Computed example of a mutant assay.
Amino acid sequence: MRLLWLSAAIVFVLDQLTKVIVVQLLGLSTRGVIEVLPPFVTFRMAWNRGVNFGVFAGDGDVTRWILVAVALAISAWVVFWLRREKPGRWGMISGGVLVGGALGNVLDRLIYGAVADFLNMSCCGIDNPYSFNVADIAIFVGAVGLILFTGRSKTA
């Protein structure tokens, strides 16, 4: 379980640190856009009140608190499941990465009322209108890792 908590803490701190640097110190929240390596990497401020791509976005506090509760419930379920499953090193790291990302976005919702998304990447003539953050990447990578590194029979 130590690997789960360590990887969760690293992802959580990295997510929050990048948000403080980009959104607060670089002033992205007031500037709106900072071109880093256009068009490949742009910091584009987006306050996400929903889930991925703003789905289920609502300006009401009810949506905010439902999404906080869902993220906390999923995180608790992942921890409980991995404690029971004992999947090994990569499964624990994957779970921690997912939990750390989820908790990073939960903290955003508690502090700002929305998730601070700022990474925008486009390539090859495709203009991506969406922004995301380190926590979003971690949630995706952690979920893929859980698929790859858990569920194997211990008797095989």
Rank of each mutant, 00 (worst) to 15 (best):
R64N: 14
D136Y: 15
R31F: 00
V99L: 02
G32N: 00
A71E: 09
V23C: 06
D136Q: 13
M92D: 10
A46L: 01
V20C: 09
W77M: 02
T30L: 03
N48R: 09
V55A: 14
M1F: 13
V115C: 04
S7C: 09
V115G: 00
A69V: 05
F149Q: 08
F12P: 08
G54K: 04
Q24Y: 10
R83L: 10
A102T: 14
A156R: 14
E85N: 06
L26T: 14
Q16E: 15
F118N: 03
V106P: 04
V68H: 01
V68F: 01
A143Y: 09
F56R: 06
G91Q: 12
T18L: 14
F132D: 15
L148R: 15
T63A: 07
T42R: 11
G151R: 07
A143T: 07
P87E: 00
L107M: 09
V62Q: 04
N105Y: 03
F149H: 08
F80H: 11
V36E: 02
F43N: 00
D117F: 03
A57T: 15
A8G: 12
A73W: 02
L107G: 06
M1Q: 11
L25D: 08
G27L: 00
D59L: 03
L98F: 09
T155Y: 11
A102W: 12
V97R: 10
N105K: 02
G58V: 05
G145R: 03
